[in-house]
Structures are given as structure tokens and as C-alpha cells.
Design a protein around this nucleic acid. Sequence first.
DNA 1: CTGAAAGCGCTTACAG
DNA 2: CTGAAAGCGCTTACAG
Lengths: 339, 339
Amino acid sequence: MNEPKSSKRQGRVTIREVAEDAGVSVAAVSKVLRDAYGVSDTLRDKVRASMGKLNYRPLASARGLRGRTYTLGLIFPDLRNPFFGDVFAGVNTALERTQYQVMQGIGTTIGALAEAMIDRQMDGILLVGPNEAPAYLSELALRKPIVAIGHHDDLTPMPFDTVNNDDQLGARLVVRHLIANGHRKIAMLSLLQEPSTVVRQRELGYRLEMMDQGLGANINVGRATQVARDVQLSVKRMLESADRPDAIFCWTDLMAFEAISVVTEMGLSIPDDVAIVGYDNTMYCDFAQNRLTSVDQSGELLGLQAARLLIERIEGRTEAEHFVVTPRIVARASSRKRG
Amino acid sequence: MNEPKSSKRQGRVTIREVAEDAGVSVAAVSKVLRDAYGVSDTLRDKVRASMGKLNYRPLASARGLRGRTYTLGLIFPDLRNPFFGDVFAGVNTALERTQYQVMQGIGTTIGALAEAMIDRQMDGILLVGPNEAPAYLSELALRKPIVAIGHHDDLTPMPFDTVNNDDQLGARLVVRHLIANGHRKIAMLSLLQEPSTVVRQRELGYRLEMMDQGLGANINVGRATQVARDVQLSVKRMLESADRPDAIFCWTDLMAFEAISVVTEMGLSIPDDVAIVGYDNTMYCDFAQNRLTSVDQSGELLGLQAARLLIERIEGRTEAEHFVVTPRIVARASSRKRG
DNA sequence: CTGAAAGCGCTTACAG
DNA sequence: CTGAAAGCGCTTACAG
């Protein structure tokens, strides 16, 4: 390996130059930077003027060595699910008037990403739909402030903040909606690998509501990985079975769009042959080729709230908070009344 | 603001502890860490053993203060276009066996994101489809290694690396394909705001090929922002105009899916009333409800190559390289032969 | 309210 | 090949 170019930081203004320009100490500039207490208005103005004049920008990694980097990590599992775009929009809104900047890490290896973020001195980490064991998350929370978006408590409340929609209720709403529209043989398409607590809550809600409605005998849960081909096979298997469901509740919109594809391919019609319902109410639901009924869990609100909670934690709060949004069903043609 | 918790780095193993454990100097550990030259096998083995035993992880921000952070920034404009997922997958593949980690910044304010990444000591930055002025990018390249994915040269070759598909050719392929399938009144739906060089190249290819094919009189370019409602209005306007096009080439799949929605909503059929073609060949093209003909520009390959070039740059290469992929058309039902 | 000094965890010349 | 010392750009107690 060659040496890094020495010109790399060439021209970068440091806190020392600001101090010289303003005729104050380095420590004084640092205080102004952090809005720390004990600075006179005169000094602050002088320093601010110099910072502006020299176009000073603090180096986050240097700050991080002693204090904060003002950087938050946001980890989500993949780039193809538009729901994460909603969450991200909310996070950005929360950070608008703050010094904090968010950096994304994307992938299902939450652990590795979280460690990389800790190595990079992120002040806190937002995790979307983590499928890691609660024990790992609890241990992680000991080392760094974290907020989980889409992670339900096991038995005991988690020692870290969580932000959720009521997934169990969301699933119940779907079942009720489908029944109200004349469907009885309601199947659910769920996730096969490493189901997160979110998946499990949705499954539970589906099962409980089916039983409450006296349709326990019709409970039918299929499972597929996120891989397109696997989803296709699962949907096909469901639709070709002896007692074909007249409605499929997919645990996420992304799977529902694939289900729509399979149903269309098979020459069946939606919703007359089979109704489809998703979860997340992403922008693609509105497309006329989908018209997908879905559950809105306010991704943007979840992201906004999560970022706020994380900053509170970084700035000192010690007891965990748990924020829950009530989901609502958004009906579209994919689940219209039968007959 | 409260003080950050002093327990924050509690328990973090430092290079000094590794040195003590291995019975060598701190400098020696640093050399092993960087695979630097001039370390005996014995010393290296001892140090590696201690690092493993103590579960040592270097602190990126401390490294960055003098050397590298082994962190690359990846900036892309939004989270809703699945094409970026392909690019990202390629970047990840390139980084697999390296020490580098990638962090994403998402948004259209490239400048602000790039500055935030420089403040955070990223070793280099990957920019996807930047719509910033070439002058800004050139100035940025002076301060930090960058690679632009989807950015064509203006007049003079850019002083930074670029990775592209041949967008002009891609657009030409679309026009040829549509003509071969019996379409003549081929319109293009392009981007209204701040068109990037990519958009312009696709427009240029479209215009040139239409003229080459003797269809110059049929050139018809509509423009819309990325906002869904605006795309809908533009498509509607096109389809309701006196000389309705019999095919619409959308500059990106995302817009094409919206076009399919509008056409479906209007009760027209695809491709008999109007053919639709997109660009990017994202996974949604395969869905039976879309069956979208599209241009494949190998997003994964672009991402892979871009990451490789960036690392080369960071490690010393000084002359700019420009990598170009030849696009290919992937025909699906949305552009089937007329009549 | 203001500042001099120490230190965060690394890397970098420079001696040996 | 190996190591002691200086230093990267900040923040943090601690004096004054």
C-alpha cells in the first residue's frame, strides 16, 4: 500500500486558526462550538464571526475522540423495500435543525454493522426491524444508546427505547377487514428465515383474530424467504392446494406485490378469485396495477419519533421509553367485496 | 446539554493494551494493523494473537486523525428507486475482503452530504447520479478521492473517475427496439428539474436515433419532476393530446411504473394502445403486473467497479479512469409487437 | 467568564 | 526489525 496523500487535509481550517483569528483560546472556540455554558456574548460573537469568515467546519472524528461525533447510525435490512424510505424521511425531519447527521448502514448482518458503527464513534444507533436476539440488543444498548424501530418486547420490557406500530392489532384489522368484505378462507404469507418479533406479532394477531371470529379452522400460514423465487413458489403452492384461500394477507407490501404477480401470472383475478392485502402502505400500493390494500403504520412518524428518542438518550435520559403507533387499514381494490 | 456518559467507551480495548499483552511497542501493533512493511513474522503472530484474545477493534476516528478511517461514503439521491439497491450490492461485493466499510448518505443535496462525509473523515466518496455542477465535483475531487457513478463528461474529461453505462446508446436501443416492434410515434418522458448528465445523454440518444430513423418529426419530449402527482399529469397530458404517442420511453423504471399506473387507470391497454419502456431493469420489471421492457445497465457491475476504482485512488493512483458498460435491452410484454 | 495543559487512540517520521 | 516521542484536532477538567 502507498502512503495516503499528505495533501489530504491541505487547507482544512482548524480550531486553532479560528482561535488565533478571533484572538481567543482554543478552549473558548470549543465551548462556542458545543454551545457550552460560560461564554460571554462578546466572545461568542467574535468566535462565530471568525468561524464564518474562515469557513470553519469541525472535524467529527477529532471531536469523537473526547466527546461526540454528532453522527447517528441508521441500520436497515435492505434497499428494496420502499417502507424504509418513509422511516428515513422521518429521521431526516427530526434531525433538520440539529447538529446531528445520519449515516446509513444497510444489510441483514446487524451485528457486524453495529460494531462498525461503534468503531466509527457514532453517538447512537437506530435499528430498523432488527432480527438479532434480544440478548444481543440489550448488550449493545449497554455500550451505546440505541433505538429499535420495529422490535417488540419479549417477556420483560427491553432496556432500550423502542418505536413500534401495534403489529398485532394491524394483523387483526386485516382479518376483520377481509371478513367484512366477504372473505373467510384467509391465509397469511409470513417470513421463513429468522422471523423478527414484528413478524411474530403479525402472525399472532392473525391467529388470534381468526379464532376470535370463529375461523380457527381456516388458519393457514405459509412461509417464504425474501427471495423472489421462493415467494413465488409459496404463493403458487397456496393457490394450487385443495382448499385454495380466498384471501392472502402478506406480512409486507413487498411480498404482496410478488403475490399479485403470481396471481396475475396464473390467470386468476384480484380480488374475485383471491384478495391480497399487504402491510406498510408504501407508495407502490397506489399504482393502478397494484391497488393494494395495506396497513399504514406511519413509517415517517416512527422514524421521526425514533430519532428524537435517540437524541434524548444521547443527551442523558436513562430510562427506556416505548412509543407505539396505532395502525390503520387503507382499503383499495385488491380486497374489494366479493361477488 | 448534559455531558456524555463517561462510561461510553468503558471496556474498549486500546492499542496500548494489545501492546502490553503482546510485550511489544504500540508502534509495532500499529504496523501489524496496517499490514505495514518491516515487521517480523514472530512479532506479527504475537500481536495477532493478542488482538484476537483481547477482541481488539481499532477505533476508526482515532486512525483517521493521522491516517485513514477505512470508511467510504456512498451518496445516492433517494431510497425509493430500487436501482440503487443493485449498485449497493456491487459496492458490497467489492468491499468484501477488504478493511473498508461503506456508509450511506441519502438525499439530493449532494453538496451538504459530501461535506458531512469529509467532516467525518471518509477516505473517499462514491456519488450516484450526482446532479451537481461539474465544477463543484471537480473542486471536491481535489480535496478527496471521489468516483461518480452515472455522470458523463461535459466537454473536457472529468479529473475524477467515472463509471457509466453508455446512456446515449441505451436510449438508441430503446428507439430501435420500439421501431422494430411497429411503433413510430415514440415519445420520451424525461426529468424536469436539474437534469443530470445522465438524463441529458438519454435524451440526446433518443433524439439522435429518432432522426437517424427518419422520425425526427415525431420527436416528443415530456418532462416531469420525480413527484408522483407530477408524473401522472405529464403522462395524462401526453396520452390526451391530439397526436397521442403509441409508445412512451421513460427515463427510469420508477417513472415507467407510474406511467403504467396512469395508462391502466385511463382504461388503455399496454402495449396495444401504448407501449411503455423503462431504464434500469430493476426487479419490479419482472412482476406480471408490470412486465416492463427496460434497459439493463448492470447496476451491480457499476457499483463493483466504482468501489474498486475508489480504493485504487485512495491507495495512490493519480490519473482519472473512466469505465463504461454497454447497456442491453431486456424485452418484456410492455413493448410487444403491435397489432 | 477565560485559558493553559493534558489527553482521547491512533499513525508517523525518526533513531537505533 | 523495533520502539520512544511527537502530533492529528478536538474536549475536558482544572486554575485563575
